[in-house]
């Protein structure tokens, strides 16, 4: 009985242990634990986004990992990567090591080799790690646009100032309108006055239409971009806000000019003031147009927004 029990227990222990060891061995083999590895050293200005155990990808395949991170005497981050010898062929002397920091998601450590006939990278040499940072790139691209927006704001401020200024153009026009009322009560022809500046009024209307179109374009453009850049507190909504304010202001100016023109088209002095004013409006509209073009050029086109899962 005792022997039989001992035999059964022994068989159970031996078989189970063998099963476990076989399973662990298979796992270790498949994970490449028994494979010899090559170690390479890279240097980087910063260790941001790097961590021990981080995988190294080549053409989307994991071929190695970061084994060690240390700071050199010169303050550079020395990154030791281990690559199984079977994957060492993908790492050449002209391979580029890149740490991609996407706008959304975790950083990705990749190596690209354009020329596979180049000599293999020596484990003694120290390659440089390049960092591609999407957030910084976007900020860099957006900066000139922000400068332009500031310029436009100045322009609008100046226009508003001009409207409010008692000695400004608007007040001059109103003064001229008063004079014109005086003329109307005199013997001047209404028809002549109307013919005098009708073209100017049409031009102003065209400019306003143009500004609306531009605003619509900006709106469409905004839909193409990611939430983070174009969210509630983003940059583009700010631009839109300013443009909308501008259009509203221009609209008001247009209406005022329209009324004034109707009654003062034959007044030479008034006509001159209106032309001057219209040219200012046109110049502002042109600025907006330039900005829209700039935006179109600099913002990459994206299809429908999609959340990528790991």
């Amino acid at each position: 009985m005792a022997l039989k029990t001992e035999w059964k227990v022994g068989l159970f222990i031996v078989l189970t242990v063998l099963f476990i060891l076989a399973g662990l061995g298979y796992m270790a083999y498949k994970k490449g634990i028994f494979q010899p590895e090559n170690t390479y050293t890279l240097s980087s200005r910063t260790g941001d986004g790097l961590s021990v155990g981080m995988p190294l990808y080549f053409s989307g395949f994991k071929i190695g990992k970061i084994a060690e991170l240390e700071l050199s005497d010169k303050g550079m981050v020395m990154i030791k990567i281990t690559v199984p010898t079977q994957h060492a062929k993908w790492i050449r002397s002209d391979s580029k090591f890149v740490l991609e920091k996407p706008l959304i998601g975790s950083p990705k450590f990749t190596v690209t080799t354009l020329n596979l006939s180049s000599p293999l990278l020596s484990p003694n040499s120290i390659a440089t790690l390049k960092e591609v940072n999407d957030i910084n790139d976007v900020i860099q691209m957006v900066q000139p646009i922000l400068d332009q927006v500031a310029m436009i704001t100045d322009n609008i401020e100046r226009l508003t100032g001009s409207l409010a200024d008692p000695k400004g153009d608007m007040n001059k026009i109103l003064k001229h309108s008063e004079e014109l009322t005086g003329y109307l009560s005199s013997k001047k022809s209404v028809l002549e006055m109307a013919l005098g500046d009708e073209k100017s009024v049409q031009n102003i209307h065209a400019s306003l239409q143009n500004a609306r179109n531009i605003t619509d374009q900006v709106g469409k453009l905004l839909k193409k971009t990611d939430e983070e850049l174009y969210g509630k507190d983003g940059i583009i909504p700010l631009v839109i806000k300013i443009l909308r304010e501008l259009v509203t202001n221009l609209d008001k100016i247009g209406k005022t000019l329209d009324n004034v023109t109707k009654i003062s088209s034959n007044t030479a002095e008034a006509t001159q003031d209106l032309k001057l004013f219209r040219s200012e409006v046109d110049s502002t509209v042109n600025s907006i147009n330039r900005l829209i073009n700039e935006l179109d050029k600099k913002i990459p086109f994206k299809s429908e927004p999609k959340i990528k899962l790991p």
Partner: peptide
């Protein structure tokens, strides 16, 4: 050891 073997037998086998 004998008790251990018996216990493994009853518990596992």
């Amino acid at each position: 050891r004998m008790v251990l073997i018996n216990q493994i037998y009853f518990t596992s086998v």
